[in-house]
Write a protein that binds this DNA or RNA. Structure first.
Lengths: 215, 215
DNA sequence: TCAGGTGTAGCATCATAATGTTATTGTGGT
DNA sequence: ACCACAATAACATTATGATGCTACACCTGA
């Protein structure tokens, strides 16, 4: 028991953060020296040789989101285990987290002892998941098999899809117009329709959606 | 509590089967009238109006396998929840089960009370999973998207990478500035540097590069 | 035949992005 | 001590994008 497991917390609600930190420090096998309200702050103190083994990460943070933060931390320090802590049931957030390398995903109503259990589970090589989350994950699996290679099909027409390809290629309206041999105003018109159908309002979002396979 | 939840069991080890059945029948909110050693036997008694809500299904059965059995039951009665019960850690069996519609996946060392908990979880819309199983599922997810494992490392600094994350999220300069709590002109400055380093000259190209893993 | 979607196009206007220039501060390396 | 560079910030200008409104030709299904 010479070495306690180092836990870090990123949570912008001070009461919750302090509560978890105090609880951690009451355990004789783990210790939480680093508790911050932002990913940026945590990254500021993380360096080789003094690395938390596990980070409890809130998703809904001011500044960088917990998901983006996790991606950053995972890319710099792949061995750090990250458990997402959130109030959201939102599927997209869940899959985004898991796909990006989260080691577990707990809903916030989870009790302190359950959080400790979750940490133990991660340290033993398991992955803690609230049952509701697990359900969504499984449903996701089932859907994948039921439709067998799903095609989101946002209802874009041929022409609109060609425009999207142009956007993904990083082209300007003018360049797309030239490539498709239509006027720039027609490109605008198509893009307006695409935005409506996809419920977005910038090139950036269209490109992101497309490259994520959501179109 | 007029209606007890109907549980069915398919398990070819008589001792285990009887044990689980007796335990179920000791609960005051659930009842197990149907316990068989094969999927075929269970299907023989399943009919509209007298349907178990949940089936505990062993994977390693004589005759039809538990996985095939589950597929069959799910195709005939999609509303029946099936929890797989097995000694196998084998990834292939796990994913096959989940993909085919299993509601949960428990390892056999699970204690009787834990099995009851698992059933409760399913009835509440969750999905029970042994932590080891959850870990495999998550690893599967990560493998799917994080296939690269390569960091091209375009020489972007931490701060610049954060900016890129913002761009990928479809944010405007203003939104990035707010999120990072810096001025919009600083965002511009960073983006100028990013463009130079990546040899691009639009948000669109940065987003595309990033999502293609070229950063 | 008529309504509705698609593809085309123009005009106008405001918002945002891209780029040039300059400057201060702090930090790490030589 | 000095240099390079990261991070911050301001100001200015031009380019591009986002969006509202209008219009017309073409098809297709009700």
């Amino acid at each position: 028991m010479a070495e306690k497991r180092q836990i870090a917390i990123v949570e912008d609600n001070v009461k919750i953060r302090d509560l978890i930190q105090q609880f951690m420090n009451m355990q004789d096998d783990m210790e939480c020296r680093n508790a911050f309200s932002s990913v940026e702050s945590l990254l500021g103190v993380m360096r080789e040789g003094d690395m938390p083994e596990i980070v409890l990460m809130d998703i809904d943070l001011e500044g960088m989101s917990g998901i983006d933060g996790m991606k950053l931390i995972k890319s710099k320090y792949p061995d750090v285990e990250i458990i997402m802590l959130t109030v959201y049931h939102d599927s997209h957030k869940i899959f985004n987290s898991l796909r990006s390398g989260a080691s577990g995903y707990l809903l916030k109503h989870t009790s302190l002892p359950e959080i400790k259990d979750a940490i133990d589970v991660v340290l033993q090589g398991g992955a803690p998941m609230s049952p509701q989350i697990a359900r969504k994950v499984i449903t996701h699996f089932s859907d994948g098999a039921a439709t067998d290679e799903e095609k989101p099909d946002s209802g874009l027409t041929m022409r609109e899809q060609e425009i999207v390809v142009g956007l993904v290629d990083g082209l300007s309206y003018k360049m797309i117009a030239d490539r498709m041999d239509i006027s720039i105003d027609t490109v605008r018109a198509h893009i307006r329709n695409i935005y409506k159908k996809l419920h977005v309002n910038s090139k950036a979002e269209v490109i992101a959606k497309s490259l994520r396979g959501e179109i």
